[in-house]
Design a binder for these strands. Structure first.
Lengths: 117, 117
DNA sequence: CATCGTTATGTTCATATGAACATCACGTAA
DNA sequence: TTACGTGATGTTCATATGAACATAACGATG
């Protein structure tokens, strides 16, 4: 099934797409950067770098992390981070819904081409 | 200004985004792969590779090219290629319009963060 | 026949990107 | 004190990616 993939451009060096958003959601769900990375089959290193990049691109941090402690540490989304995720999903949802008919048409056309010849 | 960037996933190895679409439009406008490349500040090699990739991913070719001749040769979009571009722009337009309000809200929130502190 | 602009490739090189591995710091719990 | 799980980095290496350059085929046109 054809689907839409949405990225938001907020300026040069300021882009956010489905990958980073999913990572943020996983962090919110597990309370840990490393657990989020594992869930996405991604090295901790990589996950941490993405978080670092996100925290650096926006004025306000998106993830707040703590080292040591009960479970060895952990990470949570800041209010701004939560808001960012919510807004992205809202945008994605609206976009997908609005484009659904066109997508189906394209898909159909593609199937016809595949069937023919 | 914040803007949306849309990619269409039609399967693994079957993705199309703003770059390829723009290239196709330039090819249609100039009637030449090399002219399209120049217009996008892209080497002919690169432009040709993208066209090759497009022609390979879909069942039906998207660009039809001729070597030699009056102007040295040229390239035009196939009917399917034209349709693909049109559908992409329609999808993009619908998506952008539907997400406009959310985008503005995000932009505003971002500006607030930038202003504060 | 020589020229021109284009398509169509080959080849080489620099760079960006991510994978992999290796530590260290930290704070709680046993 | 030791162990544990996590955050936070450093380092190295393989690979992917694109840039740059080079060349041939082609067909009209002069």
């Amino acid at each position: 099934m054809a689907s839409l993939s949405v990225r938001i451009d907020l300026g040069p060096e300021l882009r956010i797409g489905p990958g980073k958003i999913e990572l943020l959601e996983k962090i919110a769900a597990f309370g840990s950067i490393s657990a989020a990375g594992r869930a996405m089959d991604m090295s901790y290193r990589r996950a941490w770098e993405l978080v670092e990049e996100l925290n650096g691109t926006f004025e306000s941090p998106v993830v707040s992390a703590q080292t040591g402690g009960k479970r060895g540490g952990g990470a949570v989304l800041t209010p701004f981070g939560l808001s960012l995720v919510a807004r992205y999903r809202a945008i994605e949802s609206a976009a997908t819904q609005a484009a659904a008919a066109h997508l189906d048409a394209l898909q159909g056309e593609l199937a016809a081409k595949t069937a023919a010849e």
